[in-house]
Amino acid sequence: MQKPVPSGRALVPFVSVENMARLITSIGLPRLLTELVDYIEQDFLRWQSFEKSPRLASHSEGGVIELMPTSDHVNYVFKYVNGHPVNLQRNLQTVVAFGVLSDVETGYPLLLTEMTLLTALRTAATSAMVARLLAPKDARVLALIGNGAQAEFQAIAMQTICGIEEVRLYDIDPAATAKTARNLAQTGLRIAECKSVEEAVLGAQIITTCTADKQNATILTDNLVGDGVHINAIGGDCPGKTELAAAILNRSDVFVEFPPQTRIEGEIQQMPEDFPVTELWQVLNGERPGRVSDRQITLFDSVGFAIEDFSAVRYIRDKIRDTDFKEDLDLLADPDDTRDLYGMMGRIAGARDEGAAR
C-alpha cells in the first residue's frame, strides 16, 4: 500500500543495501547478471544518444572521490563513488557508492539507490559482456588475480555469460583467496587456490586483474601472457594506478569504454597519447572487429563508465516496480503553491509541533 504523501512534500523511491540484497536474492544472481548484460548492451548500442565526459575526480593521498554523470536526454543518472585502498587497514570498504536517477524534463529525482553492491554487479556484467565478444570461444578457465570484494561477482558472471568452468585464484593475502574459494564452493565451478600469479595463469584463457593498491604496479608481467588470451584489466581505474607491464599493451589489441577517460585512468595512461584503441560500442554494432585470430591477445582496459551505471540504475528502476524492495523517502519539498516555499516550511514545522503537543 502506497504511503500518503506528507503535505508539501514528494516521496522518492529508495533502494537500501538491505533491499538491494533482497532483490538480488529474489531474482538470483545468474539471472540478474544475464539481464543486466542485456541492459548494458542495449545502451552501448545507442552510444551516440548519451552525454559523455570523464568523471569528475577529487584526489587525495589515500584515495579518490568521484562523480560519474550521464544523460540520454530523457533520464539523467549520476553515481557518487570513492576508491580508498587505505580503507582495508581501517576495516572499511575500499569502494562505496550511491546513485540517483532523475527525470530530465522536470529535474525531479525518480530513484535513489545504494550502488556499492550495484557497482560490483555492473562491473561483473560489463566484464562478462566484453569477454563474450573478445575471449576465445572455447574459454573455460579464468585466472582471477586479486580476490577482494569484486572477485565472486566476476567469477559468477564469467561462468554465467561465457561458460567458464574453472577459476584459478590468487591474492597476496591468502585469507582473501580462501574467502573467495569458500563463497564459490557451491557454484559448480572448479576452484584452484594458487600460491602465485604464475600458477594462477597456467592454462587460463581469460585473465582478470582486480587489485586495489593506488600505485603503478606490475601485477601481470609480459612473460606470463601467452598468445590467444583475453585480459580483463579492471583494477587500474585512476591516475597513477596500473596493473600491467607496458610490454603487454604493445602486444595486445586494446579495447576501452570511453578513450578520454581511459587515457587518464586506465592501463593506457602508460602509453603515448596516440596509442591505438578500439571503443567497445563500435565492436558491438559491427563497425570495428573484435577477436579476429586464435593467436590475438585482446585486452579490455576497464575503468568503469557512467553509461554502465545508467544501465544498472535503469535496470533496478524496472525491477522494483510494484514490489516492496524499496522505501519512500521524504526527500523533496513540493509546496502546493510553488512560489511559497517559506510558507510550506512554517506549515510543516507547525504541524509537527502541534502533533508533538497532543
Rank of each mutant, 00 (worst) to 15 (best):
Q2V: 12
P4F: 07
S7A: 12
V12C: 10
P13L: 08
N19W: 02
N19K: 13
L23R: 04
I24D: 08
I27G: 03
R31M: 07
L32Y: 03
Y39P: 02
E41A: 11
Q42G: 07
R46T: 15
W47H: 07
E51C: 11
K52T: 09
R55W: 01
I65E: 09
S71N: 03
S71K: 04
V74H: 13
V77I: 14
Y80C: 09
G83C: 12
P85Y: 04
N91L: 09
L92E: 14
V96Y: 11
G99K: 06
S102I: 10
D103W: 12
V104C: 13
Y108P: 01
Y108E: 14
P109Q: 11
E114G: 05
M115C: 14
T116N: 01
T119K: 06
L121S: 02
L121V: 05
L121H: 00
R122G: 05
T126L: 11
A131I: 05
A131N: 13
R132V: 06
L134K: 04
K137V: 15
L144C: 08
A149I: 08
Q150N: 10
A155L: 02
G163H: 09
E165Y: 06
A176E: 11
T177P: 05
K179E: 13
A181M: 06
Q186S: 13
T187P: 01
T187E: 08
C194G: 05
K195H: 09
A204H: 06
A212M: 11
A212N: 09
D213E: 12
D213N: 10
D222N: 10
N223P: 00
V229C: 00
V229H: 00
H230C: 05
I231L: 15
G236E: 03
C238E: 00
T242Y: 02
A246T: 13
A247N: 14
A247V: 08
L249K: 05
N250H: 13
S252D: 04
F255T: 04
V256F: 04
P259K: 04
E267S: 02
M271P: 00
M271W: 10
P272A: 12
P272T: 10
F275L: 07
P276K: 09
V277K: 01
E279M: 11
L280S: 05
V283P: 00
V283G: 06
L284R: 00
L284F: 13
E287F: 11
E287T: 14
P289E: 08
S293I: 10
F300T: 07
G304N: 02
A306D: 02
E308P: 05
Y315C: 05
I316V: 15
I316A: 03
K319R: 15
D330W: 11
A333Y: 03
A333G: 09
D334F: 14
D340M: 03
G346L: 14
I348A: 13
G350R: 02
A351D: 14
A351R: 12
